[in-house]
């Protein structure tokens, strides 16, 4: 129903409590971050207007662009893996008809848990000497690497822990996508003599492209914002080989107190996310199937 004819202030009254907090603690800060990025402000000193200086400094900031590079490394490993494991699990659960409350809770335990706690659990398991993972590898005769203390392996470990944490969530999205596909399509393909492999690539995957698109967008956006797992697992090390964008923002604001420069970084983060999402959105007509 529409409360047409009722006092029009009622609508505003309903929106007001949320809108006040949105304005004060989200909208104004967003605007303030834009303003701040034009100031050189190192706490506790006073701010001074410097125009575009923060952005030109950022353009030459090697550490920042190294962090962007590490984020891209993370994306290159994480996005395909989480997509594959999430889809694989969803297909198995869908086929087995085993998506019950128990499996839902089981696969969602990592999703709902705090990253700090989960990252600490992984850090303990990845301990080179006393960790369970290297002990298990030793049982099959493999000498495990030093994981978080070794260049190359550190990022791999961060990717692995992140895939483990998020796979249940991606699985849920794919499960909904799979259940929206009418079973007649596959059955018709089998009648025509298609193999399972063909049915998967010619029927299931094309019909799943809207879900794949959704998963890619979500996981890309989240990847640009990774912080907690890196902060706990490696702290950006070893030798700054796993620094990421948000970690740079936190370090710049905290350790150096340079809040103007950190605000400029946060706007660059936003623009990066925005640009990637826009490109994805534009490109979707080429590969996303819409009925």
């Amino acid at each position: 129903m529409n409360w047409v004819g009722t006092n029009r202030w009622w609508g505003l009254a309903f929106v007001l409590p949320s809108a006040v907090f949105l304005l004060g603690f989200t909208l104004l800060p967003i605007a303030a971050a834009a303003v701040l990025s034009f100031f050189d402000w190192t706490l506790p000193a006073d701010p001074s207007f410097v125009g575009m200086a923060n952005f030109s400094e950022l353009a030459d900031d090697r550490q920042f662009w190294a962090a962007v590079g590490h984020t891209l490394q993370f994306i290159a490993g994480y996005v395909p893996l989480v997509l594959a494991t999430g889809l694989g699990l969803a297909m198995m659960l869908n086929r087995q008809g085993r998506y019950t409350g128990f499996t839902r809770v089981l696969f969602f335990m990592p999703v709902v848990s705090a990253w700090v706690a989960v990252a600490l659990i992984w850090k303990w398991m990845l301990n080179p000497r006393f960790g369970v993972i290297n002990w298990l590898l030793g049982l099959v005769g493999v000498e495990g690497p030093a994981w978080l203390f070794e260049r190359g392996w550190a990022m791999a470990a961060i990717i692995g822990a992140s895939v483990w944490k998020d796979t249940g969530f991606v699985m849920l999205l794919f499960l909904a996508g799979l259940q929206a596909i009418p079973s007649d399509y596959r059955e018709a393909a089998f009648v025509d003599g298609a193999t399972r492999w063909q049915a998967f690539w010619r029927i299931t995957v094309p019909l799943l492209t809207p879900t794949i698109f959704l998963v890619v967008i979500i996981s890309l956006i989240n990847s640009f914002q990774i912080f907690e797992q890196v902060w706990i697992l490696t702290g950006g090390g070893p030798v700054a080989s796993t620094t990421v964008i948000v970690e740079r923002i936190v370090t710049t604001a905290f350790d150096y107190g340079r809040v103007g420069y950190a605000a400029a970084m946060s706007w660059v983060l936003f623009l990066l996310i925005f640009a990637v999402t826009l490109v994805q959105h534009r490109a979707q007509d080429r590969w996303v199937f819409h009925e």
Partner: peptide, 17 residues
């Protein structure tokens, strides 16, 4: 519109506020 902006953008001004 606010759904598009990552939380990290607001964090520095919030901290100052």
């Amino acid at each position: 519109a606010t759904m598009m902006v990552p939380f990290q953008v607001t964090i520095i001004p919030l901290f100052i506020a």
